[in-house]
Design a protein around this nucleic acid. Structure first.
Ligand SMILES: [Mn+2]
Ligand SMILES: [Mn+2]
Ligand SMILES: [Mn+2]
Ligand SMILES: [Mn+2]
Lengths: 226, 226
DNA sequence: AATAATATTTAGGTATGCCTAAATATTCTA
DNA sequence: TAGAATATTTAGGCATACCTAAATATTATT
């Protein structure tokens, strides 16, 4: 049993998903960054990326020392997996009571083995959600990724108000910390201070006030205006 | 953290599960029967069974030309997967509206990748069921397989009455056929005739009467007395 | 612009789990 | 009970996806 979706191996799916995420901001995905994210030696990544580039059809564009980007085919496959992942996270939270720090790892294993029928039923049961428990956008059944018009929390200045839309994190410890602070999607907040050199900002949420550094605020995305 | 239960690969899990099922009636699992069930060449099965026998700890007992049986360790691993499989089937039917002919294949893929936490939550959400949608017994969290005291439908004679407990089938077409006939767990039936040479029996279910041959009746298990 | 630091690729291996063909053992049949 | 049929094992390969060490290319520093 090969555990593959359309002849694309689980391993390949992980490469494509990570290349998608690394190239979302424009640049191409470097060997090293991929190696770090995948927990694989850089040399192995080179080999794999070369293979993906010479597959038929090619799944990535690749030139030596230039990193990889997805072809149309590769992007389709990546979005397919990302849709699975995010629907699964949503579903695990809603139907089995997982918390948002527990679902990532589980979804990472399940995303490769569910059928299209499973995906369809899950989406319908959830009411065709557009965001997962972290606020990440879920590609549609047509594999179009919706636009994200959110702003990094780190770019806000007092006395702006905002609502949290999305939290870009997978580390369970960080997610639990954010949960304790009330920094979760849907939370309304206001900025009460900003320190210029360290980038810290003071935030008021749920009548509590505290300071967060850029390591946190760069990964929280908001809609401005409370 | 890999996709494995105690470092046991997906492939190994499938071998153990199938050896369990083949040895349930007492005999050891032959290379050929395993090959057929796994869809793998007999030569490959030999190699794999040899490896499982010399693993530490050994997962199967094996002597040349004598087939394989499970060690305690192997049985534990098999029951773990079977529990996953049957809970998943139950869950897919109850929460996503899959029909009983669609769940086997899906469960076969999911059974290897869900966490113990997932298993625990699923069992609780379902109310700790003891049988899956086909009536197959679900091993407990302690990995004990409950006793099955059901009788093959083929052994009944007119004018006995019985209730269907369990249907031992995975072929979707057969399962749909049985569903149409009303031969599903919980159905009350009575035997109206038996033909001695072909083993056919006439059954009345839901005010409908029809004849089934041994290919079907050998795989339906009942509790005698309507 | 040369050198140092970093990133990437190449080369040579390994483990898993499968395959086919050929050899051998077991079981059936006459 | 010998030969035929069937079942099983051995031998030799292959694909996937990883690894480490060494070579090379790129980028940053002086
Ligand atoms: Mn899909
Ligand atoms: Mn998420
Ligand atoms: Mn388990
Ligand atoms: Mn079942």
């Amino acid at each position: 049993m090969k555990t593959m979706t359309k002849g694309i191996s689980q391993s390949t799916q992980d490469y494509l998903k990570n290349i998608y995420e690394l190239t979302e901001q424009g640049a191409s995905a470097s060997t090293n960054d991929l190696a770090t994210r995948l927990g694989i030696a850089p040399a192995s990544v080179t080999g794999m990326v070369q293979k993906l580039a010479s597959a038929t059809p090619p799944l990535v564009d690749y030139r030596k020392h230039q990193g990889a980007t997805l072809t149309k085919e590769g992007q389709r496959a990546a979005l397919e997996i990302i849709r699975h992942h995010r629907l699964l996270e949503t579903w695990l939270v809603q139907t089995l009571g997982f918390s948002w720090d527990e679902v990532h790892e589980e979804a990472c294993r399940l995303e490769h083995v569910i059928s299209e029928d499973f995906e369809t039923r899950m989406a319908a049961a959830l009411g065709h959600p557009t965001r997962d428990p972290h606020g990440e956008l879920i590609p549609g059944a047509d594999l179009q990724m919706p636009d994200d018009d959110s702003t990094p929390l780190s770019s806000l200045r007092p006395p702006q108000d905002a609502t949290i839309i999305r939290v870009n994190a997978i580390d369970p410890a960080l997610l639990r910390h954010l949960d304790e602070l009330g920094l979760i999607p849907g939370a309304d907040l206001s900025i009460s201070a900003h320190s210029p050199f360290d980038g810290n900002i003071s935030i008021k949420v749920d009548d509590r006030e505290f300071v967060v550094g850029p390591a946190i605020s760069n990964n929280i995305f908001v809609e401005i205006g409370g």
